[in-house]
Amino acid sequence: MTVGVEVHATGTIPVASAAQPPRFELWHISKGFETPGGFRPVLDGIDLKATSGSFISIIGPSGCGKSTLFNVMAGLEPADAGRVYVDGQEAGGKREHFGYMPQKDLLFPWRTILDNTTIGLEVQGKPRKEARVAAAKLFEPFGLAGFEHARPFELSGGMRQRAALLRTVVQEREILLLDEPFGALDSLTRLEMQTWLAEVWVKYRWTVVMVTHDVREAVYLSDQVVVLSARPTKVRLVKDITLPRPREEALMATPEFAAIERELLEVLHEESRHALQTQRVTV
């Protein structure tokens, strides 16, 4: 650990290209939990970085610690070892850099859609009026115009997810963490949402880290797909997706797309088998 820090201080790790320094970087993140059966390592030295305005997807076998990784990044749980950097500054345990969008939309029934989207800003101390003005501007591009004063239960699943994303985006944090944002949607709505997200992302160029189970979704939306290994989790593969943008739905039918998808799926399956085996051993 100390050795690592020294190395880091001399500037050999992390390698930041002079042209574009990483927006954020995870360096050797490790974390485990005490369980009744003893200490269980979950994250085992995760390295990850993203340049500003890039879209990164994380896939991995189930139970590989993706949520733990997100919690560490969002500053909700401390890492046992390793560092989090945002724009070159140490940001471990800080909550102001990452905007977190959970899997469930968690829109509160006692608030209108507009007031749901302003809740982050309100929590951060912004006057309600200003928060509303800021959020209202995004309703049009998010396809929610006219639903400002509706209640969550009046919206479709896709609209609810868009509102949840708006709530995250409006906080203007450096990096967005999307935790399986479309996991609970039916396949048709999911496809619509993916196309929509690809469109708005090109427009706004947020720095995004998305966890997903859907390899196709990962390839379609991302600049880079990171495959995590079975627990204790390491980065198994980092795959740059150089498919041209803007991407259209038809892209998913091309042989190039299929080749990338197959490659990632193979690695993922291998890790899933691995996860099953180790589970059997521990049980």
């Binding site: 969002a74 500053g75 909550r95 905007g99 959970p102 899997q103 469930k104 809740i119 929590v123």
Partner: peptide
């Protein structure tokens, strides 16, 4: 999850 969401904010 709602508490986590608020904490992340």
């Amino acid at each position: 999850e709602a508490s986590s969401l608020l904490a992340s904010m």
